[in-house]
Design a protein around this nucleic acid. Structure first.
Lengths: 141, 141
DNA sequence: GTATATGCAAAGTCTTTGCATCGTT
DNA sequence: AACGATGCAAAGACTTTGCATATAC
């Protein structure tokens, strides 16, 4: 975890709480809400307050170390920032969220870069629908 | 406005409040939050409660007549559903949100349709960055 | 006339903030 | 030792809900 270093460079302190939040995100198999980070991390050593989770997630976001994703359920979901710009498939049936690799996000960037005058900084691509398994079953809606 | 008809088909009643919300969305130059719809519509004839705005927007969303977009500011923004699947450019500088036409959203659909087992129902593509004007000025961050 | 929609106010979620205390540097 | 981070609790922002009343069909 080079987060400690990144923090030190910025004159920001590393604390057990921040470490736990980072580790939890790193270990996560999927995107976590603040509440979920808190739940998973509370098993760990230090007491961890939900407010601190929110503060840490915001901090990681500002530093570009974590990314906030909106799936349309009214909450924020977080993941460690990836170098590759995958996008998200959210299944309406089982709620599963999967990454989908591809160059689509890059293509969006390229497209905009070509004389449209808009400088893209972040691309959020979320596709909602039904995953293979849920499409087979009788539709949940 | 054929919304009245669409509602009747579903056995749902048309009311002045619902009409006002639809008209407000139709007249809107941009995506409106529930609060904004309420503010703009309150000048109109009937009393209009914010709760009814929320209820109407949800209804229109279910019927596929309006679309809910998340710009990452914690609120929902609404627009009448377009036939064309444009995506959204959100400027970090001035907050302006513009539609950007193109076949990118269609390409996402096509891509997924080709043997990935995921049935896309809705594609949310939001690009955050700086618009032409704001990019010229000293960066706001 | 009847079932549905509205208004109002209260409650619910998710998130942020103020402030005293604790802990990293 | 000093300043930033945490915990706690309270407040804030947005949205939903319960219930009596009004109203579209």
């Amino acid at each position: 975890m080079d987060v400690a270093q990144r923090l030190r460079e910025q004159g920001i302190r590393m604390t057990p709480q921040r470490r736990v939040v980072c580790d939890t995100l790193a270990r996560a198999d999927r995107h976590l809400t603040a509440e979920e980070v808190h739940a998973r991390a509370s098993g760990d050593t230090p007491e961890l307050n939900l407010a601190s989770v929110y503060r840490t997630l915001a901090l990681l976001g500002e530093l570009g170390l974590a990314r906030q994703v909106h799936f349309g359920d009214g909450r924020s979901h977080w993941e460690l920032a990836h170098p590759d710009d995958a996008f998200h498939l959210v299944c309406r049936g089982c709620g599963e969220v999967t990454h989908h690799a591809g160059d689509l996000v890059d293509r969006v960037r390229d497209h905009l870069a070509r004389g449209h005058g808009f400088t893209p900084e972040g691309v959020d691509l979320v596709v909602r629908g039904l995953c293979r398994d849920c499409a087979k079953r009788p539709s949940p809606s």
